[in-house]
Design a protein around this nucleic acid. Structure first.
Lengths: 127, 127
DNA sequence: ACGCATAGTATGCGTGTGCAAATAATTCAG
DNA sequence: CTGAATTATTTGCACACGCATACTATGCGT
């Protein structure tokens, strides 16, 4: 059990760190690659297992986004041609999501920016 | 200088911790007190120096919110009667913000919820 | 006094989000 | 085999946010 003021302190630190980094990330990814942070994180997770198709719910599982937000995020990515949604034949309630060639390229580019921002702003706001 | 995978790891952790706690906080504060996280944080900062009036810009300084967001947040708080905006006589460009009696009460109530959520969810997602 | 650059706040606009309800497909009781 | 309960995803809606811009008030040079 942690003391109350210590908890508050940790929260304030977390809040500050997160917002500092997130703001820069959002801005940089948007300006340089036209991607939301959520869109990039989604791509990042998809690419990590690009060998296999992933269902929406699998994606949602280790994402901080709500199901509805994820649905729309994938929709945007699909509209941009970075991702494809295909019906799951086994269980037609499910939807498979796969990264396209374009998606792979955009992700590779954005990844550089992403890492750069982390290196620059995550150390600065370290705990 | 930190290694690249380590940075990524720290970021993922930060992301997860923040979102876990923030989501619960937002929900709890909203359900129990009709307050946004931003509204509560604003109140919290105002109450901390309730002896003195604070200008918008002073508030903005140690807040993660943009100026426009802060402006609207204070506007909402004012509409709810938790806060009062008065012109700064010295420099009439500035606006002073003060907490009302109602604001103090609501904050005191919400503070309990706030601390409880932190205690419950901040340790769980500790680094 | 006048105009011009600057500071402090507020507002129009578009966007992403979460919640709750809707839709679509599957499973299971009877 | 039919209808209720369940799972997977999408959509209607309202809201908070950031950016760029507009608006008001100071300060300063002339």
């Amino acid at each position: 059990m942690t003391s109350e003021p210590a908890l508050l302190n940790r929260w304030r630190t977390l809040l500050a760190s997160y917002n500092a980094v997130a703001a820069q990330l959002e801005r940089a990814l948007q300006d340089a690659h036209g991607l939301t942070m959520g869109e990039f994180e989604t791509l990042d997770r998809l690419v990590a297992v690009s060998c296999e198709k992933r269902r929406m719910q699998d994606l949602a599982a280790d994402m901080y986004l709500s199901q509805s937000a994820l649905s729309r995020t994938v929709a945007r990515l699909e509209k941009g041609g970075l991702v494809r949604r295909t019906l799951c034949e086994d269980d037609r309630r499910g939807v498979f999501v796969t990264v396209t060639e374009d998606g792979l390229r955009r992700h590779a580019d954005a990844r550089v920016t992403h890492r750069a921002i982390l290196a620059e702003h995550l150390d600065a706001s370290a705990a």
